[in-house]
Design a protein around this nucleic acid. Structure first.
Lengths: 238, 238
DNA sequence: GCATCTTAGTGTACAACATACACTAATAAC
DNA sequence: GTTATTAGTGTATGTTGTACACTAAGATGC
């Protein structure tokens, strides 16, 4: 059913029509006091010059998460993120050209780690605060909305928040992270009590640098122990 | 990019190769004392005569959930189920013929409601207990496994269990349902206390029929009220 | 080196919720 | 009316969540 001709456009023929299949990524990054999303400005039609999620067509020789990572790297330069499937969007009219089904992923990136740079289909790349998003191409606003919902849910019963922080962090940074994602203030003593009682934070002998007040102790998350406990039925909860 | 020729096989050509896109459904039904999954026996290659999940190719003029419902109705005769997207599976070798990406759905059906009957691609249709599943075609065992995980998670913080019961049910039936899905015994008094304290069960003036002991009162779930409370931030939990 | 500023770090009392547990009441069947 | 079976109910205890405010440490500027 498929005719040959590997790289570059060719002619591929099938007995039944097929939707195009793409992946799109909602990449979250934690800034000083808000949560940001990575967007690219489209170089090409449709929706030329509009802001959109990084993403693109799935190739036959790559899995869905591979496609998501490739597109992310190509269009924005971002690599090494925590990536998880979000939802598959298939409304009939979500792309003006033809039927396109997209598998959306969401990713958590450490903002400071990444020098973003636009390339391939992207004219520009930038981080946008969640409450200051521009109008987005296609149904990408819906996808972002769903990703936020999911992140808010997930962060409460899985330790994904650590993916947004540097490997060593203070308890105050961790608390700010939860406050930003959940959009509600948390009590300092109760927060520390809960987190420390899980016994998944390892106290290091370092303190934060470059602050102009008493420096806070740095902790790391004990991922190994978390995975072990999880296998034994433990469940993380904030 | 697409050439015409609507129903029946034709010739559809594209500039780049495309994976085939299918949907598959994991339909759960509640039996007297276990949870069952609906399977079909494949009439066609590949994996001819093997048991598999109902599902099939997505047409260009239907949404993903529409495709799932259509395939379910065609192959098994089941309609009117609670349907929710589960996950999209895209491993390179999940179908021996060619690259096929499938959007999996899970569905909750009231066992008694449905006269199942095989048709189209299905040689037979049957309900199988979860702990007595036959070897399944493709990666369908993985899909079922993931669906069970999801159901177990979901049932704890969303009132989806009611989709498996008749509209009027006894508290004992409801408790059995949770015990079966969660695979753990629950305390009768505590269970009733918790459920009734949410104030989402409406006591009817009917009692169950045809039992040879004291008949239990029938209740209904107040879906309207649940939706209203949910919008106000309430969250269901068992 | 002292005063000031800023954040780090800590404990307790009370309320809410989860858990463990056993008997009487109602109805059907005979 | 006797028996069998499930319905239906409350309380005491432990565990967890919540509300709340001060002292300690270190950095900075004088």
């Amino acid at each position: 059913m498929t005719s040959p001709g590997e790289p570059g456009p060719g002619t591929f023929t099938y007995a039944y029509p097929r939707p195009a299949l793409t992946v799109d990524c909602v990449v979250f990054g934690l800034d000083v006091d808000d949560l940001k999303v990575l967007l690219i400005q489209r170089r090409l039609e449709p929706h030329q010059h509009m802001w959109a999620l990084p993403g693109g067509f799935v190739r036959l020789d790559e899995t869905l998460p591979d496609a998501a990572r490739r597109e992310l790297a190509e269009e924005s330069g971002i690599t090494d993120v925590y990536l998880e499937q979000l939802y598959t969007f298939g409304a009939l009219d979500r792309d003006p050209r033809e039927r396109v089904v997209t598998v959306a992923y969401y990713a958590l990136a450490k903002l400071s780690d990444h020098r973003i740079r636009a390339a391939t289909d992207a004219e520009r790349v930038a981080w946008f605060a969640l409450d200051g998003l521009p109008r987005l191409a296609f149904d990408h606003a819906k996808i972002v909305e769903r990703a936020i919902e999911r992140l808010r849910g997930k962060v409460r019963y899985a330790p994904v928040g650590f993916e947004l922080l540097p490997p060593r962090f203070t308890l105050t940074q961790l608390q700010r992270l939860y406050e930003i994602i959940l959009m509600q203030p948390l009590d300092k003593r109760n927060f520390r009590k809960k987190l420390l009682s899980m016994d998944l934070l390892i106290e290091t002998d370092e303190v934060e640098q470059g602050v102009r007040h008493r420096a806070a102790r740095l902790y790391r998350f004990d991922k190994k122990k978390y995975e072990k406990l999880t296998r034994q039925g433990f469940s993380f909860a904030i």
